[in-house]
């Protein structure tokens, strides 16, 4: 069975210079699409990937990453909406490049589908009441 998931990888300093992600292709026949890559001043690496392949190989790939010392989070937990602060104005709708926000034509409530979110974070600062939060 094929799977495709968006995940956040945290590379500790000692792993930043090692070829790790390339082994996902070579050894586990996985495909990936880099959504975001960043090395912080303390040299911790952060990579947001869309990773796809056969479930069994995918699981092996993830096990390999974990054993190497990479910390993995699933992306859907990373951009969150603070429901208390959201006023459902809709300013986010035309900002989002991946159509993760949807307006209900009847109630005019705005829904956020984080499975569609590619963590580009454009909405974070464009949201007037600052209801969108990024958690890495």
């Amino acid at each position: 069975m094929a799977v495709s998931k968006r995940i956040v990888l945290h590379f500790p300093k000692r792993l930043v210079n090692r070829p790790i992600v390339s082994r996902l292709i070579k050894d586990y026949d996985l495909e990936f699409n880099i959504l975001k890559a960043l090395v912080t001043p303390e040299e911790e690496g952060l990579l947001v990937l869309e990773l796809s392949g056969e479930q069994t190989e995918y699981d092996k790939g993830i096990r390999y990453l974990t054993e190497t010392g990479v910390r993995i989070q699933s992306l859907s937990q990373d951009v969150l909406r603070n429901e208390e602060r959201c006023t459902h104005c809709g300013a986010c709708i035309t900002i989002c490049p991946s159509d993760a926000f949807e307006l209900d034509p009847l109630t005019r409530q705005v829904s956020f589908y984080n499975e569609k979110c590619v963590a580009c974070v454009l909405c974070i600062k464009a949201c007037p009441p600052r209801a969108m939060e990024v958690h890495f």
């Binding site: 006023t87 459902h88 104005c89 809709g90 035309t94 034509p105």
Partner: peptide, 23 residues
């Protein structure tokens, strides 16, 4: 505007509100 897009200058343009209708 509330339909989500308007036609202007031969272009279909997405719309958004800054004022909350549900509120």
């Amino acid at each position: 505007l509330k339909s989500g897009k308007v036609k202007l200058k031969g272009k279909e343009i997405p719309t958004a509100s800054l004022s909350s209708y549900p509120r």
